[in-house]
Design a protein around this nucleic acid. Structure first.
Lengths: 142, 142
DNA sequence: CGCCATGGTTCGACCGTACAACTAGATGGT
DNA sequence: ACCATCTAGTTGTACGGTCGAACCATGGCG
């Protein structure tokens, strides 16, 4: 009988266990700011993105996103180019080093999550994934 | 067939959907810093705690915890008293206003999570809770 | 009594976010 | 064509959050 109190406790524990407080490293132990890791993931998966689009996906303010992209550029991982269809817009795209960095990150992440999955009983893995998805959708719908 | 990649995506989406980036308000929309909310929850549930104990529960560094407690005191929500059994230690305890604040927070949290649970199909609620717990334990074991 | 461990505080550094004010390009109605 | 308005981004300001290191006090132990 799951009530909201239990759910809240479970979420709180999950958040703390995963070190989601820690702003300067990913839960995977990579020495890269977590917001940059998220951005890197999106850009690696979907290629060039409008900055506003990136903001929407990461659920960040445009100003925050702007700064974030500037960081990535400072590291040599991304570049800005004018949007072809809109003079105001900016396209953000990974550079080759950025692609490499994203791949390295993806690998570390996979290793971490793989280790976690190993600790989840075989038969429950699908359930865990499905539950997380269900919960996310429920949150989104709120 | 749950693989680590899917799990990683699911976790990332969950984190973003719940606005866990936002440091200055709880996912429940209460205008209170999230770290203070966590601390308030622990103190409300278990009463007076050694500061070091609080740090352990919140998985924070002692320096961070010290500041955090100072914040709570500034708000008039908590007080420090010397630990009776150890001259070095400090006991942290909620004040009456702190108890009130914690109760208000708990209420908002309950409302939020209740709304989320409403969106989860009846038959899956226990699964969601169990999955979250399983996952947290798996993370802890890593 | 000295040595090391433990609990806390303070300092400095950095990440992460939002909101507000501003610039510049796009859009739509008159 | 023009002007009001909207949208995309940038920059400034403020604040929350975290850590590690340096430091002090107390405790435990040989």
């Amino acid at each position: 009988m799951a009530d909201e109190h239990e759910l809240q406790e479970a979420v709180a524990r999950f958040v703390r266990a995963f070190d989601l407080h820690q702003p300067d490293q990913t839960p995977c132990g990579q020495p890269i700011p977590v917001s940059e890791a998220h951005a890197l993931g999106e850009l690696a998966r979907d290629g060039a993105l409008r900055q506003s689009d990136l903001a929407r996906r990461l659920r960040l303010e445009k100003s925050t996103t702007s700064r974030l992209v500037t960081q990535l550029i400072k590291r040599g991982w991304a570049e800005r180019t004018p949007a072809p269809d809109d003079g105001r817009g900016v396209l953000v795209q990974l550079t080759p080093p950025g692609v490499t960095a994203a791949a390295r990150l993806a690998e570390a992440r996979a290793a971490r999550f793989s280790a976690v999955l190993d600790r989840v009983p075989e038969g429950e893995r699908d359930d865990v994934l499905r539950a997380l998805t269900t919960l996310t959708e429920a949150i989104d719908a709120t």
